[in-house]
């Protein structure tokens, strides 16, 4: 029987590739019996969803407080003006 440590690894991997059938069966049976591994799975999926949420600016919402500094903005404008001449 696989341990929770091993199952958590397969749960993660199942988000990146299709596991071989015997592992899919083993993971599914384990998850039916194990509340903690079910939680691990839910967290893994939730994290993916949270990171894919975008705000209307098309940037991830998790970073919506971040701003380009005034210094960097001026520097970039200067570089663009020079390149445009």
């Amino acid at each position: 029987m696989l341990t929770c440590r091993e199952i958590s690894k397969w749960v993660s991997e199942s988000l990146d590739r299709k596991l071989p059938l015997h592992l899919r069966v083993e993971v599914r049976l384990h998850l039916m019996m194990c509340r903690m591994c079910r939680r691990y799975r839910r967290q893994t999926v939730a994290l993916r969803t949270i990171l894919r949420v975008q705000d209307p600016s098309m940037a991830p919402t998790a970073f919506s407080d971040i701003h380009l500094s005034k210094g960097a903005s001026e520097r970039i404008k200067k570089a663009l003006t020079t390149a445009n001449e």
């Binding site: 600016s57 098309m58 940037a59 970073f63 919506s64 971040i66 701003h67 380009l68």
Partner: peptide, 9 residues
């Protein structure tokens, strides 16, 4: 600028 920077960061 802000959106691109957020995305890159």
């Amino acid at each position: 600028g802000d959106a691109l920077y957020r995305f890159a960061l």
